[in-house]
């Protein structure tokens, strides 16, 4: 006979208290009433309907949930929304800009991903693009080998890697054979 009880006896059964969390998302200030156990990823997807940020593993093992927090790329599944109080978050929905004529101006990486067919199913794509924006902000990648290494935190199960590297190296003006 085997019994599976995950909780030890002394832990009491109760719900956590909610609090007000203020986040600036894609330039817009958002206030949410959240319990501390809501991850930034779930806050975006389930509470703000910003489903462009994807859940691919929920454990920091795939990179699909990559967003930019104050310009730095992170896995939004491994941080609590409440921990990002006051932070400025950019998601895939916030990368393109809309000009005065209401024309959508894609981020150069978004455009390059389309031109190079740097995706297939599209599920890892927002994470790849946000990660690549972070990569550019970091300024560490000088060769395509650097891009390969520094984009390895974003798994693409469809296997679009060569095209992803082509798209990023074009935007970063890195020689394709480096």
């Amino acid at each position: 006979m085997q019994s599976t009880s995950i909780l030890s006896a002394e832990v009491t059964v109760a719900l956590p208290e909610k609090s007000l969390v203020t986040l600036t998302i894609n330039g817009e200030k958002k206030q949410l009433e959240l319990a501390p156990w809501t991850t930034l990823l779930d806050a975006l997807r389930e509470y703000l309907d910003l489903t462009g940020t994807k859940k691919g593993c929920d454990h920091g093992q795939c990179g699909a949930c990559t967003v930019l927090v104050d310009g730095k790329r992170i896995n939004s599944c491994l941080t609590l929304a409440v921990m990002k109080e006051g932070a400025s978050i950019t998601t895939i929905e916030g990368l393109a800009t809309v000009d005065e004529n209401a024309t959508v101006q894609l981020h150069p990486l978004q455009d390059a991903f389309i031109q190079h067919d740097a995706y297939q199913c599209g599920y890892c794509t927002p994470g790849q693009i946000c990660s690549a924006v972070g990569l550019m902000n970091e300024g560490r990648a000088k060769t395509t080998d650097d891009i390969r290494e520094l984009m390895s935190g974003n798994i693409c199960r469809c296997g679009a890697y060569p095209h992803i590297v082509d798209a990023i190296s074009e935007v970063m003006q890195i020689d394709k054979n480096s």
Partner: peptide, 21 residues
């Protein structure tokens, strides 16, 4: 030719099964 669904995929507009709220 480029994928006709490319724009949806690079802007996060493409919705998958768990994303219809």
């Amino acid at each position: 030719i480029n994928r006709v669904d490319g724009l949806d995929k690079v802007t996060g507009k493409a919705r998958y099964a768990a994303e219809f709220n």
